[in-house]
């Protein structure tokens, strides 16, 4: 049978893949995708806990509800990030974040 531990390990691996991607990818759009991966890993974890822990029903529902909110926030974040990327592309003709270092000293 599937157990909580399977879900947790899947989520951990997926999260680490996302982290690695954020650290190595150059294109802003790819970094965005990696962030979506990380958020999904977290979602899997939440649903796993809601499904397997000895919770009452309303506590389970809490796990589901928070996933709904995370999806909402992910959508928000995506919308703003895409907007920023397009603005960046307009100004710099590139979405390579190595070339964007305006926030240095």
């Amino acid at each position: 049978m599937i157990d909580l531990i399977h879900i947790q390990i899947l989520s951990a691996i997926m999260f680490c893949i996302g982290v690695y991607g954020v650290m190595t990818r150059r294109s802003a759009i790819l970094i965005l995708m990696c962030i979506e991966l990380m958020l999904n890993a977290v979602n899997i974890n939440f649903i796993g806990f809601a499904a397997f822990r000895d919770f009452s029903e309303s506590q389970r529902i809490f796990g589901h509800v928070i996933v709904v909110f995370i999806i909402t926030i992910a959508a928000v974040e995506l919308a703003l990030a895409i907007a920023i990327i397009l603005r960046l592309y307009k100004n710099k003709s590139s979405v390579n974040i190595d070339e964007v270092d305006l926030m240095k000293w």
Partner: peptide
């Protein structure tokens, strides 16, 4: 200390981890 702020995003991500 301001020299730490390089503006390179990968550096930030690595230090965060």
């Amino acid at each position: 200390l301001k020299l730490i702020q390089t503006g390179k995003m990968h550096g930030y991500a690595i230090s965060m981890l």
